[in-house]
Write a protein that binds this DNA or RNA. Structure first.
Lengths: 122, 122
DNA sequence: CATCTATTTAGCTAAAAAGCTAAATTTAAA
DNA sequence: TTTAAATTTAGCTTTTTAGCTAAATAGATG
């Protein structure tokens, strides 16, 4: 369950052009960063993947992309899984589900004319 | 239809503690900022309302709150309607509906194992 | 028309964010 | 065991953001 601080972190993470584009592309699979579950877990080398592979698509230095990814992981919008010396990046679907639910409830309750706690933790 | 830049603005607007709290409270009606449609449009004085009334709930100077509200209006997450010399503030439900839809599609499509354009304008 | 109320604009400062390069760390591979 | 590859950390600079006060603007009211 996401509290107010969590939500602010999520929006902050998505409210930057570079991170938004990274996020969008992780979701679309554009950079082939996801772990393919049809492959055995220890055979990940076959996949394109990871921090370096994302950074190649941007005109920013690798440490800059690394820092953005860390912020996105801290905001729980992506997961980063270490396997050998590479890090595999995937969207955090659970968080997205919660955020989706949050906006849905916001709209639904508003349309019902009821008061709604956008953040219900405080 | 929200393009990528619009979405980034929305997330930036929500990714700040002060603005998030303002937004949350505009939605809950906590500061009585909404125009009550049961009242005639020209009888708004009866309602609590507006920039000053929001600012009272924060330890920040009035111009600071004014600037935050402007940013939220530019991001299209609220509307500001001038009536006499007061400004009435309401959530922009249309934008919220679009953002809700965006996250829903993101999750639904991911679960169906399909690729998804989180931002479909580029 | 003078004054009050609501809000914004201007101009400033301090803090946070986003970028960089260089160096360190971890693991793989030769 | 040395080297190479993938990533992070440290330390720095520049830009942006968030706050302030003072002044300006717009409209309402006495």
């Amino acid at each position: 369950m996401l509290n107010m601080e969590d939500k602010i972190k999520i929006f902050k993470a998505l409210g930057n052009e570079t991170r938004f584009k990274i996020f969008k592309n992780i979701f679309t699979g554009g950079y082939a960063c996801s772990i393919d579950n049809s492959q055995p877990k220890d055979d990940l080398i076959a996949q394109a993947t990871c921090v370096t592979s994302i950074a190649e698509h941007f005109d920013f230095a690798l440490p800059t992309i690394s820092r953005h990814l860390k912020e996105m992981r801290d905001a729980k919008i992506i997961t980063m899984t270490k396997n050998k010396n590479k890090i595999y990046i995937e969207p955090n679907i659970q968080t997205m589900r919660e955020i989706a639910g949050c906006f849905e409830t916001l709209v639904d309750d508003y349309e019902k004319g009821r008061l709604y706690q956008f953040d219900n933790t405080k």
